[in-house]
Design a binder for these strands. Sequence first.
DNA 1: GGAAACATACCAACCGGTCGGTATGGTGCA
DNA 2: TGCACCATACCGACCGGTTGGTATGTTTCC
Lengths: 218, 218
Amino acid sequence: MFPVVLPNRPFREPAANARGKLLEAAVRLVRTQGFAATSVDDLCREAGVTKGAFFHHFPSKEALGVAAADYWSQSTGAFFASAPYHLIEDPVDRVLAYIDLRMALIGGPVESFTCVAGTMVQEAFRTSAAIRIACETSIMTNAAALESDIAAAMAQAGVTGTTAASLARHIQAVIQGAFVLAKTQENQSCADLAREQLGHLRRYFTMLFNADEKEAPR
Amino acid sequence: MFPVVLPNRPFREPAANARGKLLEAAVRLVRTQGFAATSVDDLCREAGVTKGAFFHHFPSKEALGVAAADYWSQSTGAFFASAPYHLIEDPVDRVLAYIDLRMALIGGPVESFTCVAGTMVQEAFRTSAAIRIACETSIMTNAAALESDIAAAMAQAGVTGTTAASLARHIQAVIQGAFVLAKTQENQSCADLAREQLGHLRRYFTMLFNADEKEAPR
DNA sequence: GGAAACATACCAACCGGTCGGTATGGTGCA
DNA sequence: TGCACCATACCGACCGGTTGGTATGTTTCC
């Protein structure tokens, strides 16, 4: 149905300059260790650059965190914006296809499919307002991109009692929760547990959007 | 319906000895700063004990993390086990009442209602297997405590296509995801956003358990 | 040549953890 | 009763290494 999307395969081109290498290193290290446990030296080593390069491009470690969240937001946003599921005509199917796509992206080691923003905001929400806001923007922008499809699906199915924005946020919440639960597992089970959660999300949406069909012929 | 459960009010007695004080300090600091960003000195200052006391009771910071997860698991487990919602006869209502209770516990600053295990596992899943397992136990034990109620509700409503264990895990996933999203918000909105997610979870369960009534008279 | 893009060397503060020592209270025995 | 003995609880100075960050080159490219 879709071109195969390999999980764990980064969909970003290798960065040439130090700034890009540091952002890529930040994505990898934050995903595996978290932000606080990742030192500037770690980042430089992983990126293959020196500390001078780091502080040339970023005034502080916190600024790197903000930039990493923005970088993450932009690259994932572009990926989902260009995903072919948008071509599906029926809005309900389109929303479900988004969930299926998120499910297909889950695989391999847990740090290969988890979310940088979700990981970072857990640690930094109180210590760094800048990072918190950058993560908020990342997650909420991701949610907002789904609103129009969800609104169309709701209108078609006659769903009431909630809003498209709220449902879009819930998708993000379930995804983030799936990642947290996945991190409690040993290697092999991570992806299964995460996919299970998206399965329930899919079922919720299926029931919501089919409520019309089930209740109409009474 | 229930005796009022004040959110943000710890339901644990103040600890007398250094060990207990350190565990309480760990709960507070890990919730607000995360595990890695919390130093041993921070913990000692917050607990009002010295470093000597710390390493008398815990062989390492990692061991404190494990103990904190166990402590968290035990105290929350006891709280939910003794909650009066268990008295409700109808199993479907009982499951929904658990969700309502979780919803009622959300309020005040975000670090007063979030989960220690969920926060800690995000940072430590790769760096410390011991902490990862302690957090897994905490979350999965919490989930397992719901299984019998959910199984009874499923049997009564004739729900198929999933298992009680899977649904119990999903409750935990949505709660964890709600916490992550809440942390992206400024003070006032945190609780609202978290409650919104539990609202969707409640709707999912309501639809699941009423599926019987809707589909039977065809 | 001059600014941007890096590299090297270095710093003070802080990190987790160690260590010698003390205060206290229980136990066994004369 | 009283005292030697000892385990537990706790103290705070201290250690080597690491931290985020800086100051000062050197190279690269327009």
